[in-house]
Simulated assay, not measured.
Amino acid sequence: MPELKIEREHTLGMAGARLVAERWREQAEQEWGMNCALEPGEAVDRMRFERSGVSGELIVTETRFDLQIQLGFLLGAYSGKIAEKINANLDELLGPVA
């Protein structure tokens, strides 16, 4: 299965990162039809998500967003376009990569 790994550093702190992660969750559920489950932690939050052909996890810390996505066979052919869309989405939420 094709896998995407997208990592972003930020300076939002944990409270700000949680707000951004919540906005990302809302978009993932509404626009992409994902089922999301948040597992909050003291220093690390994990948000697991899935839908037909896609599953993954967003790991949020006070300085990083780490997104790992596993694509099913059919969506694997579109991995470049999917990564491009996710990067644009993160740019919008966090600001462009420095």
Results as ranks from 00 to 15, higher is better:
Ala28Cys: 14
Asn87Asp: 11
Leu12His: 03
Arg23Gln: 14
Gly80His: 13
Met14Trp: 09
Gln70Thr: 15
Met14Arg: 09
Leu74Cys: 09
Phe49Pro: 02
Leu38Tyr: 02
Leu94Val: 07
Gly13His: 06
Asn35Cys: 05
Arg51Met: 01
Asp91Val: 03
Pro96Ser: 05
Ala17Asn: 04
Gly13Val: 05
Lys85Glu: 10
His10Trp: 04
His10Pro: 08
Ile82Asn: 10
Ala15Phe: 10
Asp66Lys: 03
Ala98Tyr: 01
Leu71Tyr: 07
Ala43Pro: 01
Met14Asn: 09
Ser52Lys: 14
Ile69Pro: 05
Phe65Thr: 04
Ala98Asp: 09
Pro2Ser: 04
Gln30Thr: 14
Gly16Thr: 06
Gly76Cys: 11
Glu57Ala: 13
Ala17Phe: 06
Glu92Tyr: 07
Asn89Leu: 12
Leu93Ile: 00
Ala77Ser: 15
Ile59Gly: 09
Trp32Arg: 05
Glu39Lys: 13
Leu58Met: 09
Met34Ile: 06
Gln30Glu: 15
Ala28Lys: 07
Ala43Asn: 01
Asn35Met: 10
Ile6Gln: 01
Arg23Gly: 08
Glu7Asn: 01
Glu92Ser: 13
Leu71His: 04
Leu4Thr: 06
Trp32Gln: 12
Thr11Glu: 14
Arg46Cys: 00
Arg8Thr: 01
Leu38Ser: 10
Ser52Ile: 11
Glu22Met: 13
Gly95Phe: 01
Leu90Gln: 04
Glu57Gln: 09
Lys81Trp: 12
Glu57Ser: 10
Ser52Pro: 06
Arg48Ile: 06
Arg64Gly: 00
Thr63Trp: 00
Glu31Trp: 01
Asp66Ile: 08
